[in-house]
Amino acid sequence: MGRRPTNQPPPCTYILASAPHGLLYIGSTRNLVARVWQHKNNVVPSHTRRHGIHTLVWYEPHHTLENAILLEKRLTTWSRARKIALIEGMNPEWDDLYRSLL
């Protein structure tokens, strides 16, 4: 595994929500801006498309995609209350963080 080129965005683990305290989706990606855009624009038939889960409420950058995937897998085992506490620790108002990435 080599270093990520400096012109590439960092891999991220992220959480989308349908509304504050609504349905949640946890994912990981090489390019957070592009992936969230896909979710918001219903590009791929998916759980997020069927349930309107489009708001980026939490994310964490990583040095490698492998680390992002490991955190994604760990977060999916957490209780809902723990996931909500994680979101509210970074984003107490449940704002859409996507705009801050542009």
Rank of each mutant, 00 (worst) to 15 (best):
H54A: 04
I84V: 11
C12G: 13
L24Y: 08
T77P: 01
N67H: 15
V36E: 06
A68E: 06
L75G: 05
K83I: 15
N31H: 11
M1G: 15
T6D: 13
A34W: 00
R30E: 11
K73T: 15
W78N: 09
E72A: 04
S79T: 14
Q8R: 13
H39L: 07
R74T: 07
L65P: 10
Y25A: 10
A17Q: 07
R50N: 14
R35S: 06
A68T: 14
V44G: 01
E88M: 02
I26P: 13
V33K: 11
P45R: 08
A68Q: 14
T76P: 00
L97H: 01
E88C: 02
K73E: 15
A81S: 07
E88L: 03
M1T: 11
T76A: 02
R74I: 01
Y98L: 02
H54N: 08
Y59A: 09
N31K: 01
I53A: 03
T29L: 01
M1Q: 09
T77M: 03
G52M: 04
L97D: 03
I69L: 14
H51S: 00
P5A: 14
D96T: 05
E93R: 12
P5M: 07
L71C: 05
I69M: 12
I53K: 05
L101E: 02
E88R: 03
H54K: 13
W37F: 07
R82T: 13
L70F: 11
I53C: 05
R49N: 06
H63C: 08
T77C: 06
V44W: 04
R99H: 13
G2L: 10
P20H: 01
E88I: 02
T48H: 01
N91V: 10
M1A: 12
R35L: 07
H21M: 10
R35T: 12
R50P: 02
N7P: 03
W37L: 01
S79N: 12
E66Q: 15
L23P: 03
G2T: 11
G89R: 05
I87A: 00
I53R: 06
L86N: 07
S18H: 11
R80I: 00
Y14C: 01
S28E: 09
T55L: 13
W37G: 02
